[in-house]
């Protein structure tokens, strides 16, 4: 069996009094892509926010590279290479594209590899290089998503978590971005935890997938298996 980079066990979390995650367990293999699918409100975003440390897990365990990071604050996790591309991108709109990227390299690991990372990000996303003086807030949706991913890469992640990277994008650009993710896994040796609406394309690039509903994993398996249970997925995802 391949080595697991991220292992989440029985994770429970929520906001205030409202519990959203009811004991989720999942894992991402080294150099693997795991996809998390589920309807709106299933808890996908909450799951990624809890794993990234933006919200505090209520119970359960998160192990990253064999180390317990359940309660580590987000900046510590980024420093270890566990990096989130959040839903809605959360760029710094009044800073330039390049300043956004430089902030992406805020951690020690990022700073150490700064020049090299910048070249690599510009080679993956040549569009960002063309627009590097431009304010991030003035970019198109697709360019903003590229910048959000580029900024995350500047931190030199070993595991990249992406929350609906194709949301709000034209289908063609969405597919382009998912293709880039697959390329990054190959070229950078990245592991990826992907939350996506684009089910067909996600199952195409993932090597393991989870379907979650109401804060629980209701179905999991390799994409081929899951595709065979197409009716089941449709039932869960309401499509």
């Amino acid at each position: 069996m391949t080595k697991q980079l991220l292992v989440v066990e029985n994770l429970e979390a929520g906001y205030g009094e409202m519990q959203v995650l009811w004991g989720i367990s999942l894992s991402v293999a080294e150099r693997g892509i795991s996809a998390v699918l589920g309807p709106n409100g299933a808890g996908k975003t909450t799951l990624l926010r809890a794993v990234a440390g933006i919200i505090r897990p209520w119970s359960g365990r998160i192990t990253f590279s064999g180390e317990d990071v359940t309660l580590s604050p987000p900046h510590v996790k980024v420093g270890k290479g566990l990096v989130l591309v959040p839903e809605g991108r959360h760029l710094f709109p009044e800073l330039s594209v390049e300043e956004n990227l430089l902030l992406g390299a805020y951690t020690k690991l990022g700073r150490y590899n700064l020049e090299e990372s910048l070249d690599l990000v510009y080679s993956v996303f040549p569009r960002l290089k063309e627009r590097r003086e431009q304010r991030a807030g003035t970019l198109s949706g697709g360019e903003q998503q590229m910048l959000a991913i580029g900024r995350a890469l500047m931190a030199r992640p070993t595991l990249l978590m992406l929350d609906e990277p194709s949301q709000g994008l034209a289908p063609k650009i969405a597919i382009e971005i998912l293709d880039i993710l697959q390329r990054l896994r190959g070229e950078w040796g990245l592991s990826i935890l992907l939350v996506e609406q684009n089910i067909v394309k996600s199952l195409e690039i993932a090597d393991y997938a989870y379907v979650i509903e109401q804060g629980r994993v209701v179905l999991e398996g390799e994409p081929e298996e899951l595709s065979k249970k197409g009716d089941l997925i449709k039932a869960y995802l309401g499509i």
């Binding site: 440390g53 980024v78 991108r89 959360h90 760029l91 709109p93 800073l95 300043e99 902030l103």
Partner: peptide, 18 residues
Amino acid sequence: LAMRAVVQDKEGAMVVGI
């Protein structure tokens, strides 16, 4: 720069490791 980042987007600042 880190302060300005927090002003502009707190969650953005968290995910870059500030």
